[in-house]
């Protein structure tokens, strides 16, 4: 297994549960929406942490690049966490428009982020890390989340 294969697949999983949460809240099903959103936010956080605590440090120590692409990705994680907090607040306040608008913003942010990772950063990581334990460690963390 390559280092980033589990993360690649996990992006699709996050997309699916994002769509569930957005659809439920869009219909005014706040109970279903809260459940789906909690699942989505939990999975996204697990994804970010797998990258920040396992993949990025491994890549940085293998290449010596500490302030390059991984730093930009960490910054985008920070922005997405703030958007998640805004969605949670809108959900708590039953603010459908606020939730939908922030969800739309997060979706585009998240998709652009994923594409940058999948097309550029992950291939760089895979070539830098080669056959290592990183992939298995990340798969284990994501399965447990």
């Amino acid at each position: 297994m390559s280092a980033t294969q589990p993360l690649f697949q996990h992006h699709k999983h996050c997309d699916e549960i994002f769509a569930d949460a957005e659809e439920a809240c869009g219909k005014g099903d706040w109970a279903g929406g809260a459940k789906a959103f909690a699942a989505f936010a939990g999975q996204l956080e697990a994804h970010f942490l797998s990258e920040e605590e396992v993949l990025f440090p491994a890549f940085e120590s293998a290449t010596g690049m500490v302030s390059g692409p991984t730093e930009v990705m960490r910054g985008e994680h920070r922005q997405m966490r703030e958007l998640l907090a805004q969605m949670q607040q809108a959900l708590d306040e039953r603010d459908g428009e606020g939730f939908g608008g922030t969800a739309e913003t997060l979706l585009i942010m998240m998709q652009q982020h994923n594409m940058k990772e999948e097309n550029i950063l992950y291939p760089m990581c895979d070539s830098a890390l080669g056959a290592s334990e990183v992939g298995a460690t990340i798969a284990g963390r994501l399965a447990a989340a």
Partner: peptide, 16 residues
């Protein structure tokens, strides 16, 4: 807008 230095929570979302 989000590059202007304000916290993300202060930046209006896309639907606004």
């Amino acid at each position: 807008l989000q590059r202007l230095g304000a916290p993300i929570s202060a930046v209006p979302n896309m639907k606004m």
